[in-house]
């Protein structure tokens, strides 16, 4: 319970910063609109107003400040506008509707989970290979690292287009991008975890004349559990980012990425912001779910998760 106060303090500070920023960010747009609506604005030409900062303009037109919080197409929407848009699109629509964020959320979540599953499986297999085979250690690891230096934004359209030309569309291409981002933390974490047991613990197994597979199941795999969970939490959020990036440059019509793009292109910032927040909340929920599984699993294994 004692962690509640610091958390609330940080949230309050972020909200305050946001609320204060809304005024200068939207002031010029609001002033232009107010003039069209025949309100008094100083100075009275758009060109003259460009000489002022957002804050300066707000100080000269204090009567316009409330309007910055309710502006229809703001540069920076106010928190209650985003919350309202989210409420409308999450609870105010049938979840099968194309306007429902739940619908778009599922469109993004499905490839995220599939990609995460592929990436995690691949990551664990690669890590086992790297730990048990010197050839794989020397050959795979450099490529795994290089793969993560390529900007995903450059790679995603190529993967989507190439797969599209081969007739593969929808879930699979997005999952591949998600897997591409999520396998790496799993490889790194699992290699570290599987190599965790010290020489004494390995010698102990030798005195039992244990086979390699017995050593893997009895010692290396359980020893790597804490590392695996740390990797899974990074991997699942990386998967979500990968899926959203895969939706951005390819004209996808559904999903969080598509909503962000549509909002941007059609001048509906609220749509973008609502999608952005929904994605962040989804990521937090996924990571939170893994934290709970981690705590339960490690506790059952007799290890105290911190």
């Amino acid at each position: 319970m004692k962690s509640v106060l610091p958390i609330l303090t940080v949230i309050a500070a972020i909200l305050l910063f946001w609320v204060v920023s809304v005024v200068p960010m939207n002031m010029h747009l609001v002033a232009d609109q107010a003039q069209r609506d025949a309100l008094v604005v100083t100075p009275d030409t758009p060109a003259a107003r460009q000489d002022y900062s957002g804050t300066g303009l707000a100080l000269r037109n204090p009567h316009l400040i409330p309007l910055t919080y309710t502006f229809v197409r703001p540069r920076l929407p106010s928190p209650h506008q985003v919350a309202g848009e989210m409420y409308k699109t999450i609870f105010g629509q049938k979840i099968t509707s194309k306007r429902s964020l739940v619908f778009h959320g599922w469109v993004t979540l499905a490839p995220t989970l599939l990609g995460f599953l592929i990436g995690t499986t691949l990551g664990i297999l690669l890590a086992v290979g790297i730990v048990y085979s010197r050839v794989m250690d020397l050959s795979v690891m450099p490529w795994a690292i290089v793969s993560q230096t390529i900007p995903i934004l450059a790679l995603a359209p190529m993967v989507i287009v190439v797969l599209g030309s081969m007739g593969v569309q929808g879930l699979i291409p997005k999952s591949i991008i998600a897997a591409y981002l999520s396998f790496f933390p799993v490889v790194v974490g699992m290699v570290k975890g599987l190599r965790g047991p010290d020489s004494m613990q390995l010698d102990l197994l030798r005195t039992y004349s244990a086979s390699k597979s017995q050593g893997f199941w009895a010692l290396r795999l359980p020893a790597s559990a804490p590392y695996l969970f740390a990797s899974l939490k990074i991997g699942i959020s990386a998967s979500l980012v990968g899926t959203i990036v895969a939706e951005l440059p390819t004209g996808a019509r559904a999903g969080f990425g598509a909503r962000m793009l549509v909002g941007d292109q059609y001048g509906q910032p609220l749509v973008s912001w609502a999608a952005l927040f929904a994605a962040a909340i989804t990521a937090a929920a996924l990571v939170g779910a893994f934290s709970v599984i981690e705590r339960i699993t490690l506790k059952r294994m007799g290890m105290n998760a911190s």
Binding site: M200, M301, M303
Partner: peptide, 9 residues
Amino acid sequence: FQAAGLYPW
């Protein structure tokens, strides 16, 4: 061994 080396899990 010098350390008990029991598996914590």
